[in-house]
Amino acid sequence: MRYYVQRVALAILLLLAVSMLTFGALNILGDPLFNILGPVAGDVNNPDSIKMIALAKKEFNLDRALPVRYFIWLSHFVRGDFGVTFSSTGQPPVSGVISERLPRTISLVFLAQMFAIFVSIPWAIIAAARAGKVSDRISTINAFFLVAMPNFAIAVILKFVFSLKLGWTPITYVADDPLSSRLFQLLLPALTIGLPVAAVYQRLLRTDLITTLQQDFILLARTKGLSKTRILFVHALRPSLFSFITVVGLNTGALIGGSIVAETVFRIPGIGSTLVESIFRNDFPVVLAIVMIVASAFVVINLLVDFAYTLIDPRVRR
């Protein structure tokens, strides 16, 4: 129990540090007043501009000290109020933008993660069972090639081959389409993110499986006459999954980063592409909200991974 409390406390501490860093970076390195008003912010000789500046400062609490602003923002943020977007009308509110677009990114990352896990496990098992043979070497080379391919390059290649040349997959994502066709539209983006990650998982799990297969209990299982498939999938897999699970958690960060690229290339209005657009539009509250949500998700996922770890190996808790 104590272990869980400690881990949760650390996670909360981390989130606070992350939020301070993000808020601080955007407020100190960036210029919030300019982001709100545009060129008017620098026009301090025109009385109208001075009035607007004073109003904006009041409305967005810019006349307060930075720590005060941070606490005001944080108290709103934890209640789900992410502020207003910087447009002429302030509509839709940031929370509206997020709740509309976040589900797309979550489904994309989830699809990619599932793809990577369910491809890499059998791939690693087959490779480990034939370790050192020609087929294993070929698969190792393939994994190496995939790892060396940046995901934006994979996105461009997949789009070129499957959307433009073969015409098998649609080029655009249509938010109003029924679920099944939207899932199909997410196929190439999910492959973009999932393929290199699958290769990373495969390389790791293959090495761990080969180590496990050399242990005595595998020899015992073999002398008992169990089938090779049963030994591989039942006896060897579970003890080999420790570092695999950690890496799956850590790679969620890579998947989120990949979703920014994939959403941009395949024009999916998720929070990744929105982050890029908002930065170019200087839409500071949206950027802040997205970075915070993404970082929080990452921290929470790794916390859950740590907990999952204790289920497989209870010794970790002590």
Partner: peptide, 23 residues
């Protein structure tokens, strides 16, 4: 070590985009 964990709490591309957009 805490500083390292804080830096690792951001997906790296997100932190890179956030910082490069501000400089």
């Amino acid at each position: 070590s805490f500083g390292f964990i804080v830096l690792l709490s951001f997906p790296s591309l997100v932190l890179a985009i956030l910082l490069t957009s501000l400089i």
